[in-house]
């Protein structure tokens, strides 16, 4: 049975798109068939983060409006054959998305894939509400920072009231993904700790992605971080998160950079 996940946050810039690409790729790396959908109409970026920006011909809006068929708009990843992208439109605006159209597209995708990951735009408007509308589960991406935590709380409220599941009296299962975490700063009391965030948001933790240079390095070259350097700390955090999504029990840790002498030498040479 296909699972529909929304990756959301309310606040912009916390790592929704990076996380969608990394989680989607990690699921595909574990053998699942995955499609990632960009709901950020007018400001699409998932194509860029996944290195598919020059291969976009048709998009989600074209499919919603019946201009293109779903298979024409789906872009297969060049590195993983079971990872696909449905890009957003760059020229239209979010009002071109309709509830009925999104429902139909997601219904079609459910017959073809194991996982459907919806990359939500920031904010709480149409694009964001439609991205979460047909989700079975939600990943709330949060930074250890006051404005991000506040916006996550707002989004959690919306997941509990504005989704199709909520309206049927069912629950959208929620998972918290904390990104850009700096364990040393949290230990010094300079940054909200994991426990602080969990206590405030009262949502189960899916994973902790440490602040890392590997994330920017991966997006610079258009490759999900789990594919670009699967051994890096953020990649291991995303892979652990995906294992938990798949029902495995994995100890919750904050992966750290491996900085052995050999590792440093090798990394320098590779970079």
């Amino acid at each position: 049975m296909a699972k529909v996940l929304v990756v959301t946050s309310g606040k912009g810039g916390v790592g929704k798109t990076t996380s969608t690409a990394a989680l989607g790729a990690a699921l595909a790396q574990l053998g699942q068939s995955v499609v990632v959908i960009d709901f950020d109409v007018g400001l699409r970026n998932l194509d860029l983060v996944m290195g598919a920006e020059r291969r976009v011909v048709f998009d989600l809006i074209n499919v919603v409006q019946g201009v293109a068929k779903l298979p024409q708009a789906l872009i297969r990843d060049k590195r993983l054959e079971n990872l696909w992208l449905l890009p957003a439109s760059q020229t239209r605006d979010k009002d071109a998305l309709t509830d009925e159209g999104v429902k139909r597209v997601i219904g079609d995708l459910k017959t073809k894939f194991d996982w459907i990951l919806c990359d939500s735009p920031a904010g709480i408007e149409r694009g964001a509400t439609l991205a979460m509308r047909y989700a079975d589960e939600a990943i709330i991406v949060t930074n250890p920072e006051v404005s991000s935590v506040r916006d996550s709380d707002r989004i959690i409220g919306m997941l509990d009231s504005k989704t199709a599941r909520a309206e049927r009296g069912e629950r959208v299962e929620k998972h918290l993904l904390i990104t850009r975490y700096d364990a040393a700063r949290a230990a010094r009391g300079e940054m909200l700790s994991i426990d602080d965030i969990l206590e405030i948001l009262a949502t189960p933790l899916l994973g902790i992605v440490p602040e890392s240079q590997d994330v920017l390095r991966a997006s610079n070259i258009g490759c999900p971080v789990t594919l670009n350097n699967a051994d890096s700390a953020p990649a291991r955090a995303y892979i652990d998160a995906v294992r938990r999504l798949m029902g495995e029990s994995v100890d919750m840790t904050v992966p750290v950079e491996r900085r052995g002498l050999m590792d440093r030498l090798l990394r320098r040479r590779a970079a």
């Binding site: 920072e145 935590v149 009391g189 300079e190 940054m191 909200l192």
Partner: peptide
């Protein structure tokens, strides 16, 4: 002292 406790309290 770190500023995290202040952040936590303001948020709550």
């Amino acid at each position: 002292a770190g500023s995290a406790p202040v952040a936590r309290e303001r948020l709550q």
